[in-house]
Nucleic acid binder design. Structure first.
Lengths: 198, 198
DNA sequence: CAATCATCGTTAGCCCCCTAACTGTTTGCC
DNA sequence: GGCAAACAGTTAGGGGGCTAACGATGATTG
């Protein structure tokens, strides 16, 4: 739903026809591109219904997951791995992780705090910074919400076999890499992910 | 860019680990879901840069393509096929085609008209309706813009071979169909598309 | 030490999307 | 004919993105 896109995709013959008028139009590439956006939008729309039903937006959910991970990672983490950024996080770190601007993060934290999911706390050493913490209410919410969310995303992929999923991920990764290359830097591929689910 | 999403996707091992805590989490499904959203967002982001550089948003572009198609289809169309909705279109039809509400379409048409890309004209027979028409300026814009846009989308798919593209489209179509089934009606698959390129 | 520069969080203003309600017009059914 | 229902487009208000700029604090460096 976030993406404004043609409702019905062009048929392949129409693309072929248009390619006569526009030599730059590569029919199979255009078809793949349009189906990618359409499928992503469709899949996102399904899980968004879930979020809407619980009165939480995708952006706010993303912040909650980021914070939840820093709480629960230490618990789940086995001895070996480095702490991997546990403890509370600053708005700037959250913005980085959620891929939005700091200004946007301010707004998200505002509404999350207003609804009691999150608390701002001053940083004792650097007075420029804040720490953002999950409240007990948020932990309860996630505990109730996540299983259904996971079931929904699992159902979306029901139609694909295990090997089809592997193939899909491989092709999509190629596309992401190519896109990252086109947009600028040579793809931050091995950027030390270390995230828990979602 | 429209989608707020974790910047770095979880590694597969992390998903496996989280699946121990959440039995409903299907690791391969979650992986496919996240990569789908990420790749769609990345691909969209690339072409959005193109649009931004020309001061046009995705929504406005979509409206222009819808109108452009109704103008150019008759010209390109061979004798056989039915007119397929040629001529100007009403805001309600545009909203339907672009998959947004009529209220949203009002806003899009407002700014397009303000910038001289489009003109509203009263319908002579039904005074509730309007006809929206492309101006010459818009035709010129599309003529200049589309080749570059097509080259961009073609480049995104450069890394995929012809058979990989077919495979991708097949898998994505499965996902869209499944999503449509989950959201409600049994998928408007054969909905008489008949669109030219976008 | 002081001036400069970088960084943090916030604010202000814009665009685009949504829902809900409103005005005006046509249609349909007594 | 007249009145209710359906429909077209708009408006009002909200959420969630963005950029650009700001005050406050910290780091750097002459």
């Amino acid at each position: 739903m976030p993406l404004l896109l043609l409702k019905d995709l062009p048929r392949y013959e129409c693309l072929l026809k248009s390619a006569k008028e526009f030599p730059d139009l590569d029919p199979s590439a255009a078809e793949a591109y349009l189906h990618l956006l359409r499928a992503g939008d469709d899949a996102f729309g399904v899980s968004q219904r879930n979020l809407d039903a619980h009165g939480i937006s995708q952006g706010r959910f993303c912040v909650l997951m980021l914070l939840w991970r820093s709480v629960h990672l230490s618990a789940t983490e086995l001895a070996g791995a480095k702490p991997c950024g546990d403890g509370p996080r600053t708005p700037a770190e959250l913005a980085e992780g959620a891929n939005v601007t700091r200004a946007t993060m301010t707004g998200l934290i505002d509404t999350l705090e207003r609804d009691g999911f999150v608390k701002r706390e001053p940083d004792p050493v650097d007075r420029r910074m804040l720490s953002v913490r999950l409240t007990a209410k948020a932990e309860r919410f996630l505990h109730d919400f996540l299983p259904g969310h996971f079931r929904t995303t699992a159902r979306i992929m029901t139609t694909l076999s295990e090997s089809e999923r592997k193939t899909l991920v491989r092709l999509l990764t190629k596309i992401s890499t190519q896109a990252a290359e086109m947009v600028g830097g040579p793809a931050p591929v091995a950027a030390e992910p270390c995230l828990t689910a979602f």
